[in-house]
Amino acid sequence: MVLKKLFFLFVIRPLLLIFGGMRVSGSTLPTRGPAIVIANHNSHLDALALLSLFPLETLPRVRPVAARDYFCSTPLRQFISRYLIGILPIDRRPRSHHARPLEPLLNALERGEILIIFPEGSRGDPGELRPFKSGFAHLAKKRPDVPVIPVQLRGTDRALPRNEALWVPFVLEVQIGKPHYFSKTVSEFTQEIEGVYLHQEPLPSKRFPASD
């Protein structure tokens, strides 16, 4: 886990400082687990930008939850994902009906880790919010004592969108919401968290479509 700290201290943070510049507003991120951080997902920069905001001592215990089939598909990708970023790999399509996909996540929360979950599932089109999957709500239902913190990321979709390899500098905005705790039902809690994102002010590019 020393590798992860060094990677963020000497590679990711300087890169984000030079080619991004972070504008953080709202509440503060949790420094102690267990906690669940929810974020919208449009770019590979999302997880890196979020992780870079945690203090170095906390960093090893912050785990982005990511698909095993994509992030562990090649040896290089697996090395970066596991050792430099420290993802928590999960199976998108469990092989049997008896598999319990939430188990590794519950274990991680038990160990006091902070999970980063992107409920949109995968990176969508730039600036578009895809419908939230309810996985995080099922997790929160099992651990209603764990805070769920919605974080809104903007600018990453412009800086490094899906299917692009060129990182173009833009200021990255991070808005940290207040913690929510599970109550009522899974679908209601999913809607409650999704509502935080739907009621955000849209990006300038969405307010003034270029074609008007």
């Binding site: 730039p126 600018g155 412009r158 969108p161 500098p169 833009f170 200021v171 300038p204 590019s205 307010r207 003034f208 479509p209 270029a210």
Partner: peptide, 8 residues
């Protein structure tokens, strides 16, 4: 560039 409306 962060402020202005742009196309992808």
């Amino acid at each position: 560039f962060t402020m202005i409306p742009i196309r992808q």
